[in-house]
């Protein structure tokens, strides 16, 4: 009788310690994961690595993901990098670089922009938003102009 009570008590204690320990682990685990910085270290990203140096040939362009919207990086035949928002100002299609004419072209309604982002023909009413381009080591960094 006495022994039975004792086993029941130790079983209870064992269960209590076990579940309490599990609970503590279940609390600490998310906290540690929370503290550890995520892959994208910043909330407001005004800067992104658009491409690597050498990735683009002269007189070509590349669409890159900038947040939830596309951006376009152009390596001009003159040898400099230009970056713009790739969202056409007419109806928000994604624009592309057209090497034969050396301008930025929107396939949806044939809108054209020059390499400063200015709308030069077709329906787009306003220029593409221009971004700043900087080269840091092997990376081509595109950043939104602030202020």
């Amino acid at each position: 009788m006495e022994g039975k009570v004792k086993t029941r008590r130790s079983l209870l204690n064992w269960l209590l310690t076990g579940s309490l320990g599990t609970l503590i682990l279940a609390t600490i685990y998310p906290i540690i994961r929370f503290i550890y910085p995520p892959d994208k270290p910043e909330a407001v990203r005004n800067t992104i690595v658009a491409a690597k140096v050498g990735e683009l040939e002269k007189n070509s362009g590349k669409i890159f993901k900038f947040g939830t919207k596309p951006g376009i990086l152009v390596y001009t035949s003159g040898g400099d990098y230009r970056a713009f928002s790739a969202v056409c100002t007419h109806l928000q299609c994604t624009v592309q670089y057209e090497p034969t004419r050396g301008d930025i072209w929107c396939a949806c309604h044939n809108g054209r922009f020059d390499l400063t982002g200015r709308n030069i023909s077709g329906p787009p009413p306003s220029p593409l938003e221009a971004y700043d381009v900087a080269i840091r080591g092997e990376e081509i960094i595109v950043s939104r102009r602030t202020g």
């Binding site: 998310p30 906290i31 994961r33 929370f34 550890y36 995520p38 892959d39 994208k40 910043e42 909330a43 407001v44």
Partner: peptide
């Protein structure tokens, strides 16, 4: 004002268990 909403969104979507926190 520029970053508050984005940072909370960041906590919820990017940070592990941030939504839980």
């Amino acid at each position: 004002a520029e970053a508050a909403y984005e940072s909370v969104k960041f906590i919820m979507t990017e940070v592990e268990f941030g939504w839980l926190m």
